[in-house]
């Protein structure tokens, strides 16, 4: 079921910054790569990035908080992103959402107590051909029903 399975070695912060330093406009690419290290962007990390690129920390923070794929606070190990756009909505996304909420005992925006799952809404994932769809980290799942999604969650 995996579509993208990047085998990422945990990179080293200093090296990543060094790599992008001379490359103008690379902040997003850098943040993507750095986020692989801890799963989120801490203040320390953002400060080092600001320092490395010679920009203000507030700008790094402003960029990091603009894009929904960047996190500035720790999240669960797995981020479940459930599509709430119309094509998924009319094909039963609500039912899938309720099933996830029931199974994990969390609402969108929350993380399970064991720190395993974070649930959040996302806009269309471009998987509407198999709506309703969700992503769990970088894996995608489609044609879900309440039963199917419960099954998916069992595999984690």
């Amino acid at each position: 079921m995996t579509v993208t399975s990047c085998n990422i070695q945990k990179p080293n912060l200093g090296e990543v910054i060094e790599k992008y330093k001379e490359f103008p406009g690379s902040l997003l690419d850098l943040l993507h790569e750095v986020q692989e290290i801890d799963g989120y962007l801490s203040r320390d990390v953002m400060q080092q990035i600001a320092e490395g690129l010679g920009i203000s920390e507030s700008k790094v923070y402003g960029v990091a908080t603009f894009y929904s794929l960047f996190k500035t606070a720790p999240t669960g190990q797995f981020i479940i992103r459930i599509c709430e756009s119309a094509p998924c909505h009319i094909r039963g996304a609500q039912e899938v959402l309720e099933a996830i909420e029931e199974t994990l005992g969390i609402k969108p925006g929350e993380t399970t107590l064991d720190g395993k799952f974070t649930l959040e809404f996302t806009s269309c994932l471009g998987l509407c051909g198999v709506a309703p769809a969700i992503m769990i980290n970088d894996q995608v799942y489609g044609n879900l029903t309440s039963d199917r999604v419960k099954e998916v969650l069992l595999n984690f």
């Binding site: 406009g25 690379s26 997003l28 993507h32 690129l53 960029v63 603009f66 794929l69 269309c124």
Partner: peptide, 26 residues
Amino acid sequence: VRSGAGAYVCGEETALIESLEGNRGE
């Protein structure tokens, strides 16, 4: 190849350019 980070508005051409320049995609 460059990639976005989750913002629909970055499909708007000037927002996309902002994003490529490492800014908020406005």
